[in-house]
Nucleic acid binder design. Structure first.
Length: 424
RNA sequence: GGAGAGGUGGCUGAGUGGUCGAAAGCGGCGGUCUUGAAAACCGUUGAGGGUUUAUCCCCUCCCAGGGUUCGAAUCCCUGCCUCUCCGCCA
């Protein structure tokens, strides 16, 4: 959420910055509502003050045995007046809040200007696109050839956009998860966490999925206010919701492996082949809760942590800085990691690392005790995939394929595969 | 699922419808004493918001949302959560 103070003090400047990401802020409406809010709030508080004082005098008069009838008469209509103003104030505040909850984050100054993904900037590249020396097959053909990846049966069991893995390929999928978790927990200093896969709407509002993006989520039926998580970011970041963190505990670094569930409404016809875009996929997610001054360093660090996985697996990739127009709703700056897929002859997103600054923290009321400020201050949140497991499996399959259709197991994963050197 | 008890500041825990944002203790912070520390003693110590240059002042918050009342932490209703017993269960 935007700082409401920006609306009062720098409405035009904020509107201009939001325009960079293609968002039109209704400044006129906001200014009108804000003026009305101010007026009604002052009025409400005056009436409340009057009520408090009257009630106290009545109490005192009663205690000393005086006749309170005239005092009661004096405040006879106060209650109705107050209720009326309170209702109007409430209404205005709700309108303001509704608008604010729908406003995306302001892009950071270093986020490149642009309209869509074509304007994203390549920041660096690691490795060269894999040269196999034969016509590469994509993961779907490879998986089918091995008899270990079966979309038809997944359709029977659930529907489209699901995958069934079996045998060594299923184990490779698990090996990737363990490898990533161990790396971040043991070498990068993240605290491993196990979290709920169902969350309530408060949590989704806090990280920014609600109210705007409800159609991307799977919602549970009649049984309470539950949604399947679209990413571990939601349960993990919400650990600090409504908390005030002591300065010496900062930064907090969490890593979690969870399944993720996305309805993929609005992506009909996109990536329908294979396991690139699924309703259910596994992801290892890193989350950092940091001091505001440290958040951009934290973003660089966390991005490197995600890259480390690709390097250890020797998968060629590039890092892309998302432009203002391609930025996610809650992010101020985002690096995407794109891995080379020989089957598509393209770099494809495998991780997304973002700094949300205080956008999520404000919605979440996540604060820390800043010794400088003397008052609790909002934290910054930074997160990123480290990595999307399904897509990493695809990348391993396609980059490590052999001409006979077998797949060499990357060195780093062999300890997790019982020493297996190739999947055939 | 059934029956009962309960949700108060960082924690423990008082609170009769009327200066109660709330006693007391612990913890934290500052100080006195001390070479230093401990102990003891003294002081201080919740969050959010409005107005203001700032101080002051004012408002809201005792799980959440409604209600009763001139006045609610306290009374009533609904929801959520926790605990105990029984049942069921990986």
């Amino acid at each position: 959420m935007l700082d409401p103070k920006l609306i009062r003090n720098d409405l035009e400047g904020t509107a201009e910055k939001l325009e960079r990401r293609g968002f039109k802020l209704d400044s006129e409406k906001l200014a009108t509502l804000e003026a009305e809010r101010k007026k009604l709030q002052v009025e409400t508080q005056d009436l409340q003050s009057l009520r408090n004082n009257s009630a106290k005098s009545i109490g005192r008069a009663k205690a000393s045995g005086e006749d309170v009838a005239p005092l009661l008469a004096a405040v006879a209509d106060l209650g109705d007046k107050l209720k009326d103003v309170e209702l109007r104030l409430n209404d205005i505040q709700q309108q303001l809040n509704e608008i604010l909850m729908g406003v995306p984050n302001v892009p950071h100054a270093s986020t490149p200007l642009g309209i869509d993904e074509n304007d994203n900037q390549e920041v660096r590249r690691w490795g060269e696109p894999t040269e196999l020396g034969f016509e590469p097959r994509d993961h779907v053909d490879l998986g089918a050839g091995l008899g270990q990846m079966d979309f038809e049966t997944a359709v029977k069991i659930a529907g489209s956009r699901f995958t069934l893995l079996s045998g060594p390929l299923a184990r490779l999928h698990r090996a990737l998860t363990q490898f990533m978790l161990n790396m971040h927990a043991d070498e990068h200093g993240y605290r491993e966490t196990y979290v709920p896969y169902l969350v309530n709407s408060d949590s989704l509002r806090a990280t920014g999925q609600l109210p705007k993006f409800g159609e991307d989520l799977f919602r549970m039926g009649d049984d309470g206010d539950y949604y399947l998580i679209p990413t571990a970011e939601v349960p993990v970041t919400n650990i600090v919701r409504d908390e005030i963190i002591e300065a010496d505990r900062m930064p907090l670094k969490f890593v979690a492996h969870t399944p993720c569930f996305r309805s993929e409404a609005g992506s009909y016809g996109k990536d329908t082949r294979g396991m690139i875009r699924q309703h259910q996929f596994e992801k290892v997610e890193m989350v950092q809760v940091v001091r505001p001054a440290d958040s951009y360093n934290a973003l660089e660090e966390l991005t490197r942590h995600a890259e480390r996985i690709l390097r250890e697996l020797v998968l060629p990739y590039r890092v892309v800085s998302l432009c203002t127009g391609d930025l996610g709703f809650s992010a101020a700056k985002t690096y995407d990691l794109e891995v080379w897929l020989p089957g598509q002859q393209k770099y494809r997103e495998i991780s997304s690392c973002s700094n949300f600054e205080d956008f999520q923290a404000r919605r979440m009321k996540a604060r820390w005790r800043d010794p400088e400020a003397g008052k609790p201050q909002l934290v910054h949140t930074v997160n990123g995939s480290g990595l999307a497991v399904g897509r990493t499996l695809v990348a391993v399959m396609e980059n490590y394929q052999n001409v006979d259709g077998s797949i060499t197991v990357p060195e780093a994963l062999r300890p997790y595969m019982g020493g297996l050197e190739a999947i055939r």
